[in-house]
Amino acid sequence: MSTQSQHGAIAGPGGVMPSGSESAPGMTPRISLRGIRMSFGSIEALRGVDLDVYPGECVGLIGDNAAGKSTLTKIISGTYVPDAGTIAVDGEEVRFANPADARARHIEMVFQDLSLCDHIDVMGNLFLGREVARWSFLDRATMKTRARAMLDDLDIRIPRLNARVEKLSGGQRQAIAIARAASFDPRVLIMDEPTSALAVAEVEAVLRLINTLKARGVAVILITHRLQDLFEVCDRIAVMYEGTKVAERAIAKTSLEDLVKLIVGKGEAI
């Protein structure tokens, strides 16, 4: 296995121990993954991944395309059920059969494809799956007021809340997906490429949002290709390579150059 770094050792067939693990001792991780494996047909997307994320911490998840970042986060959010491995939330082992189970544990995710319903209006998308209802009738007035407050909270400017989402720009759509995940008191927030379609000011707003959520004790997992953003919000970086976690670095003890080397599989040099 060429990806083995100088600190690492092979843990088992196909599994690689991460190098330089930095974990806060004495605390229970908000979310803890052990030995997660997942195959799609003949392709082993994940080959035994361990990851801990603590309350109030942001972990950056980086790696090349097809390294398994999105698959791993989709397992945490209940979208995929792993073939093997365990997930524990606050020390309690859980099993997510579908996304609703993960949502019930306050695990929220901003998906790369945003997962918006184009034919439903802005507030409908913000409240998708948890509509405010009285006797199963939608309470539009309450949802409208709260939707406006949610968007104002994040400095998102969308003039018409009853516009259908298909009429909005890519940035506005992404902003809605972020607002939806961040506004319902998440305990774990996973963001898969949340800033790819955003303008400068909006990226700053998202990074500010992450720091605000961290201060409230939310555990954040951030996937991004904009490595400079990691240094503004993350406490730790986990590097994925070909379905394994090859390295974990505290943000203070690493640099952009090191991360790039780890991503492309030249971690032995550092």
């Binding site: 996304p99 949502r103 998906f111 997962s115 918006l116 034919h119 409908g124 799956g129 948890r130 939608l138």
Partner: peptide
């Protein structure tokens, strides 16, 4: 709520599932 589920499922089935 049921009507909203019908529209959401037709608009984007996977998004509706992910939204619980």
């Amino acid at each position: 709520v049921y009507g909203r589920r019908v529209v959401a499922t037709g608009s984007n089935t996977e998004a509706a599932r992910r939204a619980g």
